[in-house]
């Protein structure tokens, strides 16, 4: 209980501060580094291509789908599942409502349950694939494994907390919140930042290409 009080109170406050400060720092840093102005005459609309890239690259590409369907499907499943569970589990909404001042309606618990299992399964599949596939294994750094762990832990602990019979709910809830706090702290300083930067970087690439007249 003391532990739970800490993670719900000071722990969460530290994590939130680090998370927000970290993200802002990263964004401002990127923005301030700046780009040299491109003086060439644009061949096509940069912004159209930029937006197009943001959208197009969110869809599965045919080539990849053929070459490694597992990575594609598991990747989508886990990203979508993670987001839905994060944003539409009723207790989560209460957390956001408390911070943001507004809430929204959630998904029924059995659905969340199912999504959590799917998400965990997809994450495990991706890890196994990363370990087995020689190329991916070669390309993986320790950061990839850390990022995997901090993403997976909140889902697993959350699922266990929901099923209160496995471990005492008080302990599980505390561990769940702690795992989220770890995620928040690690987030701004690792690849996890892509959750915010993916759209920006896709737009940037798309716009740069579009300007040069490349068909995306």
């Amino acid at each position: 209980m003391e532990f739970l009080n800490w993670v719900r109170g000071p722990g969460l406050e530290y994590a939130t501060v680090i998370f927000l400060v970290g993200i802002l720092m990263r964004f401002l840093e990127m923005w301030l580094i700046g780009r040299k102005p491109d003086l060439s005459r644009p061949r096509a609309s940069a912004s159209r291509a930029g937006w197009r890239a943001v959208w197009r690259r969110s869809l599965p590409s045919e080539g990849l789908m053929k070459n490694s369907p597992l990575v594609m499907i598991a990747g989508y499943v886990f990203h979508i599942g993670f987001l839905l569970v994060l944003l539409f589990y009723v207790p989560h909404i209460h957390f956001f409502k408390d911070v943001l001042g507004f809430g929204w309606s959630g998904l029924p618990t059995p659905v969340i349950n199912f999504l959590s299992i799917l998400t965990i399964a997809a994450l495990v599949a991706l890890l196994i694939h990363r370990l087995i596939d020689p190329v991916r294994r070669f390309l993986s750094t320790s950061q990839d494994y850390i990022v995997w762990a901090v993403t997976t832990l909140p889902v697993v602990t959350g699922y266990m907390a929901m099923h209160m019979d496995v471990m005492p709910y008080t302990t599980m809830l505390a561990l769940h919140i702690l795992s989220v706090e770890i995620l928040m702290v690690v987030f701004p300083f690792t690849k996890l930042m892509h959750a915010f930067t993916f759209a920006v970087s896709r737009y940037y690439n798309g716009a740069a290409m579009g300007r040069k007249g490349v068909q995306l």
Partner: peptide
């Protein structure tokens, strides 16, 4: 599930 402090 809400934070105990004033996060906002």
């Amino acid at each position: 599930s809400a934070a105990t402090g004033d996060l906002s």
